[in-house]
Nucleic acid binder design. Structure first.
Lengths: 253, 253
DNA sequence: CTGGTTAGGGTCGACACGACCAAATCTGTC
DNA sequence: GACAGATTTGGTCGTGTCGACCCTAACCAG
């Protein structure tokens, strides 16, 4: 608080009483698995600046709510989904000029949803888009503000979160096969995992997923029916749960 | 951005143009090793609210600087240390009422310093305190605002950072023995590490620490002189560097 | 010289992990 | 109905890591 040393060109006794006013927004990167690929929700901006451009859903924080509450409110407004499930703050962004209108500091959140059927219905369909994350990262989709960097950080975060917490179950339905769960890891990390080893890794930490005893219908290509599981202990409780590092599966011939 | 659904008691079309004004501050948790224990820098508040109470150093962000720059400026002002070395953002805090005066959102940073000799000299000595982290966490030291929670999160972050990045070298001097480096892990995690196994873990990832060829003076209790190392590849570059998990050393008899 | 202390190096067993193979069970086609 | 392809599930095995433990080298204090 006590300013002591002098900065170049700035008065030594910067008066905190006349603090500069900022707008504080909350942006939510909403991730989901669709068609075996990682997707994210984008909305089209209806106002300047960046009017007509795609952007991460978000909005102004209100003085009466916490940051977490603001994030959940925005998530609900954009998708109609009201989940306390998976909503993690992962960064704050406040570069000067990131919003040409005014001084804006945004707090970024990461949300993981398991299905998107109702999502696009929740908001205006013409203004919402479920874009593959790969396209956003590679620059095929231009985003407003510094949202591209925010998305980059979000993906990085979800990758480590997959490893350190059991967050993968948030991507899949209430009941799922191990193949579906494995697909989450494969899509997020861009690797191929051995099914047998993956099974053992999952079974290693007891209580994370629980077998239901029922069997799933095999796909159109056939194959042995897979057991159905449901999410056990939530990913919120535990610390490190399991590790699935670099097991690679050779090229499919 | 487009608000659609109605919230209870809140107008459905919340007008973003009349956005609420927030003050944005940057708080820095400055950690260092002192006397074999993890310590942090606290400053005494000179103004209301919480006047006379201990708090994390911090201050208002200026519209012309980024959040990172603000954090570095605060760190320099408080300690006289100007290091791009280790400064990591780890959280944003914006609960309503966290500052009784106004709406304040703070972005918290974590800084790691290797020595504190000049630190207390850099700021006003009567208003600065190098407090053991354990005392702060246990509540023996009361902090202003929600700074106790911020400190908790900072410690949690530095623990994982210690594991995932080679940040430990930021705690020690420009040249150090492996015993000093090991003490950083032991103090931060509250465990005892086997010296021989620790040596192997460090040597496992080449380039992290580099032997200087010189030897350190043994302590007053004698013992074989230890080799001196210097930090090699910075912790900023690489991703996961090494893993030191749960190796425990039995009670010293 | 002797005992205490610390650094550095070696060994060994347990266990985790990745690569690979085999059996079981389904779908679709011939 | 037989067969090929696909997929899940379970087993094996070699390699490497990790933790526990011991030993020696080198220093200090008496």
């Amino acid at each position: 608080m006590e300013t002591k040393s002098s900065d170049a060109g700035v008065p030594a006794d910067y008066d905190p009483a006349q603090f500069p006013a900022f707008a504080v927004t909350v942006d939510v990167v909403i991730l989901t698995m669709s068609d075996g690929e990682l997707h994210m929700l984008l909305v089209r901006r209806g106002e300047a600046p960046y009017k007509g451009m795609w952007a991460i859903p978000g909005g102004f924080k209100r003085p009466t709510e916490t940051l977490d509450e603001a994030a959940r409110r925005e998530l609900a407004e954009e998708t109609g989904v009201d989940v306390a499930s998976m909503l993690t703050q992962f960064g704050a962004y406040g570069d000067p000029g990131r919003d040409p209108r005014m001084n804006v500091v945004t707090v970024a959140y990461l949300a993981v949803l398991r299905d998107v059927g109702v999502i696009v219905a929740g908001t205006d369909a013409t203004d919402a888009l479920l874009a593959p994350v790969a396209g956003v990262l590679s620059g095929q989709v231009d985003l407003a503000f510094d949202h591209r960097q925010i998305v980059r950080d979000a993906i990085e975060r979800v990758r480590v979160e997959l490893e350190v917490s059991g967050i993968a179950t948030a991507f899949v339905g209430p009941t799922f096969t191990l193949a579906e769960l494995r697909a989450v890891y494969e899509a997020t990390w861009g690797v191929q995992l051995d099914a047998a080893n993956f099974r053992r890794s999952v079974a290693a930490d007891a209580g994370w997923v629980i077998p239901t005893g029922r069997l799933a219908q095999p796909g159109p290509a056939g194959g042995r029916p897979a057991e159905l599981y449901r999410a056990g202990r939530s990913w919120k409780h535990g610390g490190p749960i399991h590790r699935l590092t670099s097991q690679r599966r050779p090229e499919r011939k």
